[in-house]
């Protein structure tokens, strides 16, 4: 959660959050139509550079958050590699059937997950949620009742975590024992989920009442404490993305690493 970790703000923090969100969403949709793993490979290089040097966070945070990416790479690619369809068989053993096509398709999927993982971490590490929601109200015309609900819910999270810890202590004191296996897991989830949900629902209800008591819904128009407009940083970000895509594209044609261009 970027609210509780200290960092040095960089130019990425000053990009308009809605613009950042839309740009990344557009990228996501666009990437669904990229079927060349070489392209993705070069995209990763640019994205990593930005992730490593652009967020202003400590190496520890950057490193810790990057670890799951390797697992993601494996889990997104292995199924396709072992069980995908293809013509040119490399290896066959029982159910496992690795073909050239499925292998590169699997690699492609893994690479794609990593690009997304990097970009999402980049977003999460350089965007203050409060600014994001102010910006979505101002630029994307999100209704205030949604935006402020999100902000209020974020404020409640640390309280929920604290309650979770208290619950754990209380169950220890009261000598709660769980059954083994699936049943125990079900009992455990229920034991924690019910009090946490009940408390949070009640608190959310009270906060909503308190917000209304402060005349939240009385006026349709409102002013804003934070104004989030566009700056030249947004242009910079746009140009970066553009250059990044072009270079990745050119490289993928010039310096071919994977001997396939179309994995679909």
């Amino acid at each position: 959660m970027s609210i509780s970790i200290s960092y040095q703000p960089t130019w990425l923090h000053r990009i308009n959050p809605s613009f950042k969100l839309l740009a990344l969403t557009a990228l996501f949709i666009g990437m669904l139509f990229i079927h060349n793993p070489n392209f993705l490979l070069y995209m990763i290089i640019g994205a990593s550079a930005l992730y490593l040097f652009g967020t202003g966070h400590s190496w520890k945070v950057i490193g810790l958050l990057a670890i799951p990416l390797t697992i993601i790479f494996l889990s997104s690619s292995t199924t396709m590699i072992f069980f995908g369809e293809g013509e040119h068989t490399w290896f066959k053993f029982g159910l496992i059937h690795i073909t050239e096509e499925s292998f590169y398709r699997g690699i492609h999927l893994g690479l794609r997950s990593i690009v997304f993982g990097l970009l999402s971490l980049l977003f999460a590490l350089t965007t203050r949620p409060v600014y994001l929601f102010y910006s979505t109200m101002q630029q994307l015309k999100l209704k205030p009742k949604y935006a402020y609900s999100f902000m209020a819910a974020i404020r409640m999270l640390p309280i929920i975590v604290e309650e979770f810890q208290t619950l754990r202590q209380a169950f220890k004191v009261r000598g709660v024992q769980y059954s083994k296996g699936i049943k125990g897991m079900y009992e455990k989830i229920k034991l924690y989920a019910i009090p946490l949900l009940a408390q949070s629902i009640r608190r959310a209800h009270r906060i909503a009442v308190a917000m209304e008591a402060k005349q939240f819904s009385k006026n349709n128009k409102r002013t804003f404490y934070y104004h989030l407009g566009y700056t030249n940083k947004d242009l910079l970000f746009f140009l970066f993305l553009l250059v990044w895509l072009i270079i990745s594209y050119v490289c993928s044609n010039q310096f071919v690493v994977f001997p396939v261009e179309y994995v679909r």
């Binding site: 609210i3 409060v130 402020y148 902000m151 209020a152 974020i154 404020r155 608190r203 009270r206 906060i207 308190a210 917000m211 402060k214 005349q215 939240f216 009385k218 006026n219 128009k221 409102r222 002013t223 804003f224 404490y225 104004h227």
Partner: peptide
């Protein structure tokens, strides 16, 4: 159970926004 914003200044600003106070 009566604050909706994470920071102190933002909490009071929330009320001022509701009252359409100029920024």
């Amino acid at each position: 159970a009566q604050f909706c914003m994470p920071y102190l200044d933002e909490e009071i600003a929330f009320v001022l926004e509701n009252k359409k106070t100029p920024q």
